[in-house]
Design a protein around this nucleic acid. Structure first.
Lengths: 261, 261
DNA sequence: CAGTGGTCTAGACCACACT
DNA sequence: GTGTGGTCTAGACCACTGC
């Protein structure tokens, strides 16, 4: 038996796998896991192309079709991007056409691009110790070091979003106000290039809230204007939470858009 | 050439199709369209099973793999549901485990089921003529007959959602307050069984708003309590809008949950 | 047991992008 | 032209369901 195979013994041939594996896992799922490992380890970096289907098939000693199915799933999870004739690429937040991948706020007329580039103003950035609820969200312990960032996003000159972010201190060691302020582009793109942290998915909890005085001042709104509260936890690979974000959106001329199916 | 084929001439064989079609459309996409037609025409009804992959392959004169890919896409669009060993079924809103398929409001602790069954109270139901904005949303003309429904949903006895719905008069001829009030279950399930209208996807625009006095009274809230405004347009097959719904959600103990990827 | 969907393979050929 | 992903086929066998 060929123990040099990158796959576990039970997967060297499909037939063996099917016949003998107790907790059955399809070959393509195992391939998917191996590809995921390579993404995680940084073997293939965001924006780069991964090896061709034929190469991967040879590497994993399976048919092209099996690799294809693995890649298909990763592509539908938005971890990879297929481009016919060119190759398969690692998804990134740094490309212009996916600028606002996780931002679902859109103008009532048109789209965010039609309002020109967003102005990003860093209000504050400091290190502190995690409170209980922040620690829980980030899978840390209470008192662990975290980074807190407050910023305001404006569209067409109108302050529209106020956000507080909390990041785990470890992975984001070295992040400063200056570094944030100097960077013009999606924050998640900076996280990728500077800290090797790729946000892969997120969950949001949305509420309607009354603003407090500070929020009113930063967003330049009257005290009676209700705000959309958007609490997001963003995850890297392996469902590891890497960011807690509390956003407050003005919704007089914008709305949060969601497609259901 | 076999003109009795259910497929267009350019699709009788894959080779011909590939070689000669000007606006190239993959075979499996065409099959997908044909299956969609059968769903739309009611040949296969919600909850029923469709023919097996082998049968469909014979019917459309393609390989099982091609049918499979067509069904795969329809299943990922939530139009069909595959069950290994049993068959492929037409999706429906009438099954218990998909009760709240389009409702994204969940309790801060637990899920909607943990709060017991929702109480649905029909406040109002009347026919009227479409205003300009309602007509636009439903692809009707201003002044066309529409049905307006107002209802309140309560969870654990607490009124939580106030909704106004507008439905096109034609497809929903015969819908009355009584019929709605007597039906205990998801409204979209009633639409399926009584009117043959299957909601397939929807889009929502979400805002934070200040409630008006009527809303305060129906939801039993203080005038200062901000509400989540959720405006939904729901579509049947062919992207035909079939419902406009304006919901107002209380978010003191619930939140709108959204997963991003 | 038979019938269904699910996985895997091997091979052919097409569409697209680059050079 | 060469190499990439995309489509299609035919056949084998596995896993799950229900008779």
């Amino acid at each position: 038996m060929n123990n040099n195979s990158p796959l576990a013994d039970n997967s060297i041939s499909a037939a063996e796998n099917f016949a003998t594996t107790p907790a059955f896992s399809p070959l393509y799922q195992q391939i998917k896991g191996l590809i995921l490992q390579s993404l995680q380890s940084g073997e293939w970096k965001p924006g780069e192309s991964i090896p061709s289907e034929m190469e991967l098939a040879a590497r994993y000693r399976v048919s092209q079709g099996t690799v294809r199915k693995a890649i298909d799933e990763l592509a539908s999870d938005n971890l990879l991007i297929r481009r016919q004739g060119k190759g398969t690429f690692v998804a990134t937040h740094a490309e212009h056409h996916v600028q606002y991948r996780f931002l679902k706020l859109v103008p009532d007329n048109g789209n965010l691009d039609s309002e020109g580039p967003a102005q990003r103003e860093i209000v504050d950035c400091k290190r502190l110790r995690a409170t209980a609820d922040i620690a829980r969200a980030l899978a840390l312990r209470t008192g662990d070091a975290v980074l807190q960032v407050r910023r305001v996003l404006s569209f067409a000159g109108v302050p529209t979003i106020l956000e507080d972010l909390w990041l785990p201190g470890g992975p984001f060691k070295g992040l400063t106000t200056e570094r944030l302020a100097d960077y013009h582009g999606p924050m998640y793109a900076l996280f990728e290039t500077e800290f090797g942290v790729r946000m892969v998915r997120a969950e949001e909890k949305i509420r309607a809230v009354q603003p407090d005085p500070t929020q009113c001042q930063l967003l330049q709104i009257a005290t009676g204007t209700p705000l959309l509260s958007v609490e997001r936890v963003a995850y890297t690979y392996n469902d590891t939470p890497m960011e807690l974000r509390r956003g407050f959106y003005r919704t007089e001329r914008h709305h949060y858009h969601n497609a259901l199916s």
